[in-house]
């Protein structure tokens, strides 16, 4: 009997995780694409030296960070994938979203400063403690760079 309850709870969590997780992901992706379109003119590059046209601009460090959490369905798929080996695509989309979101937040900060571009962008990814287990609980992505502010 215990076994059936356990299995039921497991399947329920799985279904909930899938349903809400997927909905949240799709919603997030929609919002990311929208904002990326809006901020497309605020250029982000990884070069260390400002291009000639920005040589008179002011500089200021900007950053954007985001902590995203994994849903139960993704955890289960990742755990299964861990047994077999290979690409954990359920985490890949999570991190892809997180990274784009972090860049967007950085761009938003730069925009509020009146910047034309962000150069020398760097990323930092780290697992946020609080998930005591071995599996991924939540992950932080930080994007930072130098905003080139219009004089």
């Amino acid at each position: 009997m215990d076994v059936i309850i356990q299995l039921g709870v497991f399947l329920l969590l799985l279904a909930l995780g899938y349903f809400f997780g997927r909905r949240a992901e799709q919603k997030h992706y929609r919002s990311i694409r929208e904002r990326e379109d809006r901020l497309r003119s605020l250029v982000v590059i990884s070069e260390r030296f400002p291009p000639p046209e920005l040589l008179r601009h002011g500089t200021q460090l900007v950053s954007g960070n985001v902590v995203v959490s994994v849903d139960y369905f993704k955890t289960v798929v990742a755990a299964l994938r861990n047994l077999v080996g290979g690409n954990i695509s359920s985490y890949e989309s999570l991190l892809d979203r997180a990274r784009r979101e972090a860049v967007l937040r950085m761009q938003e900060e730069a925009e509020s400063l009146g910047a034309d571009a962000v150069i020398n962008i760097k990323f930092e990814t780290s697992r946020v403690s609080g998930n005591a287990g071995q599996a991924l609980g939540s992950v932080e992505v930080l994007a930072y760079g130098t905003a080139m502010i219009r004089p």
Partner: peptide, 23 residues
């Protein structure tokens, strides 16, 4: 692609994320 950087982070036991980015 120039100015390429790598970043590695262990996001779960036995699984790690690698990021490569550049201009």
């Amino acid at each position: 692609v120039i100015n390429v950087r790598f970043s590695t982070s262990a996001i779960a036991a036995g699984a790690s994320e690698i990021l490569a980015y550049g201009t």
